[in-house]
Amino acid sequence: MVAYLVFFACVVLILGVLTLALNLQWGFTGLFNAGVVGFYAIGAYTHAILTAAPQPQYLGNFGLPWLVGVVGAMAATALAGWLIGLVTIRLRGDYLAIATFGVAVSIQLVALNWEPLTGGPQGLTRIGKPLARLFDTPFAFNLWFLVLMLAVMATIYWALDRVLMSPWGRVLKAIREDETAAVALGKSARRFRLEAFVLGSTLMGLAGALYVSFIGFVSPYDFLPIVTFQVWAMLIVGGSGNNRGALLGALVVWAIWSGSGVAVTKLVPPSHAAQGAAIQVILIGLLLMLVLLFRPRGLIGEAAVVSRHVND
């Protein structure tokens, strides 16, 4: 039981990083990123390709140290965020959603098909974990990873706080609050949004690297669109525009998702596993729509209307 909770806590913290990143893009900048899972995947796969133990059939697998993988993942995602942002940020809200959704789908297809680099459907294994050699049992490693994640989360939370209080952050908030200010700033507003988008993407890449270094392997089936939906749900349930809300949302939504998954496996006979899984998704989909309809602020979110400045 304790082992499960430790595992659960690690996953929640990783998803929390994703949610904080999305909050930066949406809650603070008003950019609807419907391709969260794509950046998550880029970070995950970059880390995997850099750190996985070398094997002859793969182009990558450089066996580099964990830290290199993490930094590489962040750099790759930052670059991707910059390129994608350049093209898509000026699009109006729902077009941005479609474009970023398409980005994520394409990335997942690359991960699935480019076998020499990504391992195709089988993915890659033996990925660099932080200080794996020091811990001989999975439980011991997970416990250490939890401590590491707590430290990472604390750092990110604190750093985001400082960034948002900084002059840069204040301009960002001003752009969010007042459309005319954004128009007056013109091209500069777009530059701020791009920077926020890139920063958010970088954090998503970090989350991806942390995820695969936690579980030790990467598979394209971990990066389906439903992950984006889950992260969005976390942000909406917790209350967007609010970092505390983001983390709370991550905890609540993941608890519900895991919990309902466990309940379904217990209640539904294995022969109907597919149906059981369908019930789980239906329940959560309904829950989210109910939250949207009846408590759009989420659990502790702001009442203020976010992003009146989206370009439409």
């Binding site: 729902d94 959603a97 939906f229 369908a278 989909g285 989210l288 729509m289 309809l293 989206v310 439409d312």
Partner: peptide
């Protein structure tokens, strides 16, 4: 509601419809 809330709601509705 903003158009983007609608998009998210649509995403949720799609999930429910598909899994039904």
């Amino acid at each position: 509601a903003q158009p983007l809330t609608m998009v998210f709601a649509a995403f949720g509705a799609a999930l429910v419809m598909r899994h039904l």
